[in-house]
Nucleic acid binder design. Structure first.
Lengths: 337, 337
DNA sequence: CTGAAAGCGCTTACAG
DNA sequence: CTGAAAGCGCTTACAG
């Protein structure tokens, strides 16, 4: 396969490279005749533009980049897709950048910014740790989606999320209302401003409001994979057979836990109740379907985009809470007598 | 945030841009002293390289690009990860390019090739249709993974896959051995050289070998999503209550079908058996766990990489079949009396 | 070991 | 409406 450049195309079409460039970019200031001549050659050559060269010149930071943490995360991917939909309405094109679970979204931001490909950012599922300081340094408008940045004191960052603490409290209330008193909590790292810390506190709020003791040591830290959740549950129930409910911080975790219980000969929800979080599609399909906290993907997407536009227009940062919903699935039931 | 170029770094460090470039690329021909001077400035400035400029110059097609069809496809993603692992051993760096379900891997190839970023390709989960001709035009070494290209007559393309036809036949044999006689088949488009066509034929092989009639019209075409599989099964069972088993062409499909059956008040596997395909992690965790055909991800990855290296060394194309395994899950059982 | 210069393939004012 | 020229930020022979 030959590699052709716009120079080759220009030569063959008998026009200047700048003219080819104009045709390729759909500029209006080209005669129909010339456009056709150029396009014919493009077709004939099977010409493909070199995006590196294009991006190198294209210096206008008109893009908002959506940075998604975790390629596998169905929930975040869902929101990202919805954002693209929203963007159809606005003129601002979006650029989606997926980063690995362990990667740093702030590095990704810097890279995209340095390449002048993005002048603003939406961070989907960002971790809140010391690295979050980088947001301040960047200075351009940033929106945190599904993460609460209200307490970070950013002057250039908005956020859209549910009230994770209240939502988890509500879920725990729901579980306790079914008569459970020995409830385990499995989730992510409880540090700092991370949503997992908030969810943990929400669970604690409920437990203490109901006068139920919970030893902070009992908290089970797990990665958000089927395997880790499975292993965690296996260890937990081998040691504590008297637990009757498990609150988890993701639907995938819930599925892993449910399988572990099954393998231990315990039925869900008859013997043990298990709750999830997020409300991904799979949660409705698996058996038992997961009782979970639904975060509204389309609303989070829509409002994130709106907030970003707002900031780009000079508006001040805002921190928006959207409504969550308790989804009643088949995985939580009354405690057995 | 300021954007610095290597020119800024050079100026500040009091060296030439070429020297900065050398340091950045870890070339050996730089004095330790100079290297330190440059790195200090890089640190101070928080300098980030512009990859567009870098890639524009970096003209050597040393990369093999792995093109993965479908960001959501857990099975293909798994294989891609394993390929990266394999690549640690070899010196050739890999570049992973994810494309959407509807996108054209051959366009992606052309783009990457035109940008001189890749001189060879591994196509994961490619569709085999008229567009596959593009492979011939590209001319550089290509490996199809999970797809059989043996009958395409490519001079520059190898392939690694299981024997999809035999595997599906084996699965259908297994189902029939449980006494089922009214089996539905749900899967992808049966056209041409696509793996779904082969799977379909495999199912037919088994049915006819067992003297069971199957009207080609009965085949149920479905997209590979939970929702589509669910809807398909709903329609199917509303019309044909007497079916006792469903062979599907993916684990996700199986999960969708199982949920539909449940919602219709039918139990899996007591009332209806359902089989999957691929053997993704989730298949082992969901309830019932899926009886499925396991394709070995690590072996497919390893052999694909090996075949590519082989072709790069001038070897002729080869078409390798790896072993599949029937995984006995909880979703297929003896037909009820 | 280091620097000056050419060039990768585009785009975009600037003339005409 | 079209073209010649400069330049985006790098890398890489080529000298020294």
């Amino acid at each position: 396969m030959e590699i052709y450049t716009i120079r080759d195309v220009a030569r063959r079409a008998g026009v200047a490279v700048s003219t080819v460039s104009r045709v390729l970019n759909g500029r209006p200031d080209v005669s129909e005749e010339t456009r056709k001549k150029v396009m014919d050659v493009v077709e004939e050559y099977g010409f493909v533009q070199n995006r590196n060269a294009r991006n190198l010149k294209n210096t206008k930071p008109i893009f908002a980049a959506i940075i998604v943490r975790g390629r596998r995360n169905a929930f975040l991917n869902d929101i990202a897709e919805q954002m693209i939909e929203c963007a159809q309405g606005f003129k601002t094109p979006f650029l989606i950048k997926y980063i690995d679970e362990e990667d740093d979204e702030f590095d990704a931001m810097r890279q995209l910014y340095a390449e002048k490909r993005a002048g603003s950012f939406i961070l989907l599922g960002a971790r809140m740790d010391e690295r979050s300081e980088a947001v301040r340094a960047v200075g351009v408008p940033v929106v945190f989606a599904t993460v609460d940045a209200a307490n970070m004191g950013y002057e250039n960052a908005s956020s859209v999320c549910i009230d994770d603490r209240a939502a988890t409290r509500a879920m725990m209330d729901h579980i306790l209302a079914q008569g459970h008193t020995r409830v385990a909590v499995i989730g992510g790292c409880r540090d700092g401003e991370d949503i997992f810390a908030k969810r943990y506190l929400g669970a604690m709020d409920s437990l203490s409001a109901h006068g139920i003791d919970y030893d902070a040591e009992e908290y089970i830290l797990s990665r958000f994979t089927l395997e880790d959740a499975y292993d965690s549950a296996m260890r937990l129930f081998s040691a504590h057979r008297n637990i009757t409910a498990v609150l988890t911080m993701s639907d995938m975790m819930a599925i892993g836990v449910i399988r572990a219980l099954r393998d231990l000969g315990l039925r869900v929800p008859q013997d043990v109740s298990v709750s999830g979080f997020d409300g991904i599609e799979l949660a409705r399909y698996c058996i038992p379907s997961i009782t979970t906290v639904r975060q509204p993907p389309e609303e989070i997407a829509r409002r994130s985009v709106a907030l970003l536009c707002d900031m780009l227009d000079g508006g001040a940062p805002q921190h928006v809470k959207v409504d969550y919903a308790l989804v009643d699935g088949e995985s939580v039931a009354r405690v057995r007598a």
